[in-house]
Amino acid sequence: MPQKAAPPSSALAALLRWEERGGTWAVLNRSPRELTISLRTCTAGEEVERLTSDDTDLAGHVGDRVRSEE
């Protein structure tokens, strides 16, 4: 029986929900251990919340990008 794909981590799930709803994001800080991402409105780009995580799934999704628009 094929294995089901693991659900995304909570940090990645939060970012994916944000993207699905049209929100944008920008990386504020990137270190070898942690990412801090600014979650922004889709209309004016105003920061609504910050997401800080050491989650490797989140880091993999963001990759080398600085903004969601890249």
Rank of each mutant, 00 (worst) to 15 (best):
P2I: 09
P2M: 04
Q3D: 07
Q3E: 12
Q3R: 15
K4H: 12
K4W: 03
A5Y: 04
A5D: 15
A5K: 15
A6M: 14
A6V: 15
P7M: 02
P7G: 07
S9Q: 12
A11D: 13
A11V: 06
L12Y: 02
L15W: 01
R17C: 14
W18M: 05
E19W: 06
E19V: 11
E20H: 15
E20T: 12
G22A: 07
G22N: 04
G22P: 12
G23Q: 02
T24R: 14
T24G: 13
V27H: 02
N29G: 04
R30A: 12
S31P: 12
S31L: 01
P32A: 00
P32T: 01
E34F: 04
E34A: 02
L35W: 06
L35G: 10
T36C: 05
I37H: 08
L39H: 09
T41D: 05
T43I: 12
T43N: 11
A44K: 14
A44S: 13
G45R: 10
G45E: 05
G45K: 07
E46D: 07
E46W: 05
E49M: 05
R50D: 02
D54R: 15
D54Q: 13
D55R: 08
T56R: 14
L58M: 01
A59N: 10
G60K: 12
H61G: 05
H61L: 02
H61S: 10
G63Q: 08
R65I: 07
R65G: 07
V66N: 13
R67Y: 10
S68I: 03
S68Q: 06
S68L: 00
E69S: 09
E69F: 08
E69W: 08
E70H: 06
